[in-house]
Design a protein around this nucleic acid. Sequence first.
DNA 1: AAGTGGTCTAGACCACTCA
DNA 2: GAGTGGTCTAGACCACTTC
Lengths: 222, 222
Amino acid sequence: MLDRIGSGEWPPLHRIPSEHKLMATFGVSRMTVHTALSELARDGVLTRVKGLGTFVAPPRSHMTIVRVSDPAEDIRQRGAQYACDVVVAMKRRGSAAELASFNLPDGSALFHLVAVHRENGAPVALEDRLVNPAAAPDFLEQDFTSTTAFAFLMALSPYPEGRHVIRAVEATERLRTLLALQPGEPCLEIERTTWTPDRVVTVVRLFHPAMRFELVGAIEPR
Amino acid sequence: MLDRIGSGEWPPLHRIPSEHKLMATFGVSRMTVHTALSELARDGVLTRVKGLGTFVAPPRSHMTIVRVSDPAEDIRQRGAQYACDVVVAMKRRGSAAELASFNLPDGSALFHLVAVHRENGAPVALEDRLVNPAAAPDFLEQDFTSTTAFAFLMALSPYPEGRHVIRAVEATERLRTLLALQPGEPCLEIERTTWTPDRVVTVVRLFHPAMRFELVGAIEPR
DNA sequence: AAGTGGTCTAGACCACTCA
DNA sequence: GAGTGGTCTAGACCACTTC
């Protein structure tokens, strides 16, 4: 069936034969046809409507899937040496804007971590993280040079939902110093908010030196 | 089953009961159990190994899915006015590096398009695109102010595969001018290579002003 | 050899769409 | 009312893993 779509024999929006007809065409049972069609529909190649039929999906817009994981893991996987400097690790009162993103009342406290991740000594990421104390009460007792905040929080809330924003930012004086940036070198910023059904767990901003970092992803169906 | 995983009754890496046991537990047929488990495996919640068993997937690294579509569509969808200036549209001999990314022999010709996309008059993207003439012989005859190159190529090769690289870049003099950048403002660059089973179709680099553009995505299973 | 998941069959009932 | 896809059943054979 993929061949027929790829060859243009079944163009976008074309209605393909019904399950019963495909049974006869391919000489298999209806469950087999159905499973195959359902998988293609799940992959975004087909669109199925009960009572109506199965259609070749319209040309999809590109989706890129970017994996964002633990900086420490990434670095070690590349066979490089990982190190981490903790710049700030404290409990403090959140600003109004910060608390709004956690849906917490005014005056609540947040944990604040700032850390620099290094690959073979060179800084590759500045992590600026806020954590909801309710989600990880003993967050500050961790030794972040051995376990990253990412790994610690993932162990507590293994299946979070969340949202990313990726943008380019001009380097501030602080970023220039902490990330050892070249003059004029900007940063790639990834802001990530993660939550469980109960609460917002953490809001983290990762700043990466433009010249030493890029996000790679595949274009995928869907 | 999702409840049991979410509640921690089945922690990450836990081996869950076999299909036969789940048949009995839930009082359904094996096909039903199998379909449910396969779907969860496809969603990245479970890992299945033939002959071994079914396991709760380890905490997943975050995957962000970023939709990258036609700049014109995005802008119109926001209710803004779209316009496009074509800066360069020509056929020329490709450099060695360019031809290498197309897997074309030395000396081959490529189409080269440079265009500025505007939202309500303000430039939001500089498109620098190379196109394989074999994939779109009449590319240069298009009126890119009415149909974007993206839309045109998607119509010719509706189901491409591809690869993205996202990075932050310092603005060059040319970018500063064409995108009307603020002094010191960097760009977010999205480089996208798309191919069909036959050939590399196009390599495009989109430069976005840092202050007027960000990529938003959801953290998803898988 | 026993247990696992992968795949398939031939039939069934249902909810839905459209004429 | 005819045709569509959604879901389920009870059984089967296979390839693979582990003991």
